[in-house]
Every structure is written in structure tokens, then in C-alpha cells.
Design a protein around this nucleic acid. Sequence first.
RNA 1: GUGGUUGUAGCUCAGCUGGUUAGAGCGCUGGUUUGUGGUACCAGAAGUCGCCGGUUCGAACCCGGUCUUCCACCCCA
Length: 459
Amino acid sequence: MAQKPSIPKGTRDFSPSEVIKRNYIIDIVKTHFQTFGFQPIETPSFENSDTLLGKYGEEGDRLIFKILNSGDFLRKVDDVTYSAKNANTIAAKISEKALRYDLTVPFARYVVMHQNEIDFPFKRCQIQPVWRADRPQKGRFREFYQCDADVVGANSLLQEVEFIQLYDAVFTNLKLEGVTIKLNNRKILAGIAEVIGAENNLINFTVALDKLDKIGEEGVKKEMLEKGISQVSIDKASPLFSLSGSNIEQLDALQQLLASSEIGSKGVEELRFIFEAVAAVGLQSAQLAIDVTLARGLNYYTGAIFEVAAPEGVKMGSIGGGGRYDDLTGIFGLKDVSGVGISFGLDRIYLVLEELNLFPPAIDQSLEVLCVNFGSKEALAALQLVTKLRKSGVKADLYPSAAKMQKQMKYANNRNVPYVILIGEKELENASFVVKNMKEGTQKEYNLQQPEDFIASLK
RNA sequence: GUGGUUGUAGCUCAGCUGGUUAGAGCGCUGGUUUGUGGUACCAGAAGUCGCCGGUUCGAACCCGGUCUUCCACCCCA
């Protein structure tokens, strides 16, 4: 080992306690996915490049990890292409596969490929890693997990309501209180653009609007001007910046503002339905808030747009997001299939739970009982006891060597083991075993033939 | 992809304008205590100063490159 080994930037190793905590989150997410009726699927880590490229915009294409072809791939590149030194052109020749960038596009591909086996509406969930050649920051990695739930083939707005409930159920179960589910509708954005006369500049308009909480009203207006939106249009959009009051009040204000726009009115109507339905079923711990500045990946959303913000005071980007896309599978040739879905950002939820100290206290308790090893004869009796404990479902272990007692006790202490069992010469003679409660420092003796008494005390 | 920032013992960090054998706390190992951890006291081990190159009599410190960390853009989970 001449050189210290390392891992690529933006990737991480997970230690035992980290894996346990990640699994804790995954288990909760998975449980609720299932109780809401979603069926799990998995797709390959890498796809054909043409499945992914062009689906996330120019910016997205740049962030897709491309996989080099096998063999003597440079042979396929002719001299003209080679000497032109255009990375994209050459990449297309030497790379035909790429790591998946999210779970939604592979899912769309899956639906199209399996359309004849699927019973629609199809509710699927998927928990797998994705990769992005992004520049890492806190909460931004190049390899991270997404937990997605989507429905295809159902136009009803009840789906949107259900996803809000799903978010609420998961975050409530995780004890993460005070998350805000922000809600918007693409139709409202389109309506606003129409009303102010910027419909040809919709994307620039919404991208700028999306930055409101970051750069403020003046910043947004400045960016809109730079992006070619007229001062007249910007002035007309002014009421948006002063939108306030309850969700219903904001909806009323929007309704007035968008009265002349058919699509905008439709968006307000949809949003109102969702709010009223959610109010009727109630939420346990999450807040639902209308946010007209919410734009997100405008590439394919056509209706509702969701984003989940961590509780106030936690500095973290969104911990979940999603929306409706009326024609996602269209890009793969299957028309008129509506889809709506959400995603949980596992890695960010982990960081938030860690910051707020919300993991269950005993979560990293990988061992309940450790038997001290006093030597070959005693260890055999201890192993028999350990075997019985394990059969009863107790996480038990025997220290493998007759090391110094101090060392064994210290090991138990460091591993957070609540009970240590001692079977030495004395105990063997009495056919007993001593249990030390590591937290309280007390000891109790049990009959070696009747470990049930001890096991019962653990429950 | 653009601009900036960081890297010293297992961990968290000191290290003055470049000057002999690079320090602390925690952790680790051993001992006080050969059947008792977490507290206390004593002792000890442990670092190619991220990596490569340059300037210099001399570099952890200055310069260049590179990797990594974090931050602001971009974008996003």
C-alpha cells in the first residue's frame, strides 16, 4: 500500500451506525409506500444513453455520468470528429451507456416497455441510488438515494391529495415535525405568464420567480429584465410579490388575478380542490402551503408541483419534491398517459434527522447481550447460553477469546451493550450465570438451566 | 461548468514574519485493579504536515499544479 486509498468526490462510505440509521428511514418510507398501495420495482443502474440524454435539459445532460464503451472504442471515431475536439460529439461515439440520473425517466421507460403487463392505474415505488456529476456541497452528493412513488394512468386530483397524505404520514412517523409541503400548479404559472404577456418567456419567468426567497423581489425583477421580460409585464406581475394571508386568501387573490386566463383559472381551481380535500382528511404534522414561486424542473411538470422544505431553522435544500406530468411516457412513444409522483431525498432527510437529533436513542444497539469469555470450559457453557438467547431472538454474542476481563468489559461498553453475562468457574459450579446491567451497574444471578427468566426480563 | 475555501496523530484542532527532535484535548495501549466497563491517577505508542513539483542554506508555513472538503453561482434530492 504505497498510497493512501481514497474515494471519488461526492461519494461516501457508510459505517455500521450510519447504515442502521439509513435503514431506519428507508424502512419507514417503504412501509408507508406499501400501506398506500404502491408496488416496488427496480431498474438497472445504467441505461442506454439515448434513454436519458435530452430528458433533463442542457444542464441535466452535463450532469449525467457517461460510461465508456468497452474495447478499442477510439477506433470508431473518425479523424475529422476527433480533431474537432467537440466533447459531446466524441462522447456520443465512445459512450453508449450512462448512469441513471433520477428514477422518473427510467420509470417512464419501464412503463412503456411493460405497458402490456401493467394494470393501470399503476402505482409504483422505487428506492435506489442515482448519480449526478454535480459539484458536491453539503447535502449534495454525486451518488445519493431517491425514494420515489408515482402513479401512472390516473387523472384524478385525488392522487395529488394522496401524495400529500403520504408525505405527512412518512414525516410524522419519522418524528420530523414542522415540515412544509409547498404546492403550486404549472397551469397557474402559465396563466400568470399569459396575463402579464410573457407567455413566450415562460421558463425564464418562472426560473426567476423561483428565486424570490433567495434574491428578493428586486433581484427577481432584475433577472426578469435581463432575460428579456418587459418592464410592463414585470409591473403587472407585482401583485405576486405581495401575496399573503391564508392559503384560501391567496387562492382568492390568484383567482382574481387570473380571471382572464383560462389555463390560469383551471390551475387555481385544481389547487383549490386539493386544499379543500386535504383540509377534509386532515394532516398529522406537516403544513401545507401555497407557493406560486415554486417552479422546479419545469421540463415535464404540467399540473401540480410539490416541494418539501425542512422545518424552520434547518439549513437544507428541499428534502422531497414531485409533481404531475401529463405526458411523460410520450417521449418514449406512449401517448396520453398521465403520471404524478413524489420523491423523498433519503440523504438529506438523514442529515436533517441527525441535526435535530431525531433518531431513536437505542438505534445503534447492535447487541443486547455480551458473554464474557473466561476460558475454553466456561466459554462452552456461555456459547450454549448464547445459542438459547439467539433462538429467542435476543441479539447475543460471546467474546471470541479469553482476553482480559477489563478489555471485554470495555468492548461491551463501547458497543453500547446493555447487559453483560458472566459465566466463570464459580458460576459453572453453581450452574448459574450472572447478568450485569451496564447502565445501572447492578448484577443479578440466574439459573443456567432457566435462561427464560432472564429473557423475560428483557421484554 | 464559473469563482472562492479547506486539508497537520484514529477524531477535533493549535503551530508566531520560513529556522533544530511538529504540539494539545479526546480516543487508543499498558499500569494502579491478574472476576468487572463507564469516573480518577500514572506511563506509553502513534503524523511521508493531502499528493506532485518549484523557490531557499533551510518549507507544515512561500510559489505552481493536482486531488479532496465546504461555500456562492448554475442546477437540484
